[in-house]
């Protein structure tokens, strides 16, 4: 589904990614862990198409297409979704309005009929129940005045409504208390299916207690230094990252 080969990227002349390789197949859940400043969020933003990053080498293929050649909205319409680490507050833009516009933009792209307001609202309501969100959130402005936990739930709500093929979760667990983490994890697990892939970027292994990954990767210095399974995350939790860095340097 997603094939990243030898990816190099710069931000303002600073090289952040230095030859990153990653293969993600449908049905798989990958976790990318790593120390601060290792390039985790940069990777998420580059995959989602944010401006300000210069890809100097390498390629990203998504569903057989050159992902980097697509504008952000086309990536979204092709089924890629980024749950932001810091969801943006947009005063004056209604939450449900954005959801519906996004949903219909994707359907239109697929050549499907746009859903009418009543059916759409019914769909959103079921997803909100799952995320244990208050119906009043729909009529509020996007993320405006939301608590950290509400913002993260709102991201997962959007994801559940838009049903992406490839979900990128950028530190979705950060800033969540344990109850909120469980709800968010429930939402992510709901999306799990043989047709979809999930790429989780996380600092801590505690998210992985609730969402079991098939693969765990250590990203440091702009490259994947080590890959393993669930056990690697536990080992990282116990031993930190230094041993991986030392092993790679050796």
């Amino acid at each position: 589904m997603l094939s990243i080969k030898n990816l190099h990227a710069k931000v303002e002349d600073r090289e952040i990614l230095r030859g990153l390789d990653l293969e993600v197949k449908a049905g798989e859940i990958h976790a990318i862990m790593g120390p601060n400043g290792s390039g985790k969020s940069t990777l998420a933003y580059i995959l989602a198409g944010r401006e300000g990053y210069a890809v100097t080498n390498g390629s990203v293929t998504y569903l057989g297409k050159d992902l980097l050649a697509m504008p952000p909205e086309e990536r979204a319409r092709e089924g890629l979704f980024l749950a932001f680490q810091y969801p943006v507050e947009i005063p004056g833009v209604n939450n449900v309005y954005l959801l519906k516009a996004a949903y219909n933009a994707i359907r239109k792209h697929r050549g499907e009929e746009e859903l009418d307001a009543v059916d759409f609202l019914a769909l959103v309501r079921t997803r909100m129940q799952l995320m244990e969100m208050d119906a009043g959130m729909l009529s509020r402005a996007v993320n405006e005045g939301f608590s950290g936990g509400e913002k993260k739930r709102n991201e997962i709500l959007q994801m559940l409504v838009l049903e992406p093929k490839l979900a990128l979760l950028d530190e979705t667990d950060s800033g969540l208390d344990i109850d909120a983490l469980k709800v968010v994890a429930k939402g992510i697990n709901k999306l799990r299916s043989p047709e979809r892939a999930i790429l989780m970027i996380t600092h801590y292994q505690r998210l992985l207690d609730y969402i079991e990954p098939d693969f765990v990767h250590v990203l440091a210095g702009g490259r994947i230094l080590k890959s393993g399974d669930r056990k690697l995350a536990l080992e990282l939790e116990r031993r930190g990252y230094d041993w991986v860095l030392a092993e790679a340097a050796a």
Binding site: E73, F81, V88, I90, A101, A102, H109, Q158
Partner: peptide, 19 residues
């Protein structure tokens, strides 16, 4: 905000006029 809206599938013109 513009990038956030585009990352949800909205084209740049729609995102701009929405904001």
């Amino acid at each position: 905000a513009l990038f956030y809206l585009r990352s949800r599938g909205l084209d740049p013109e729609t995102a701009r006029s929405l904001l």
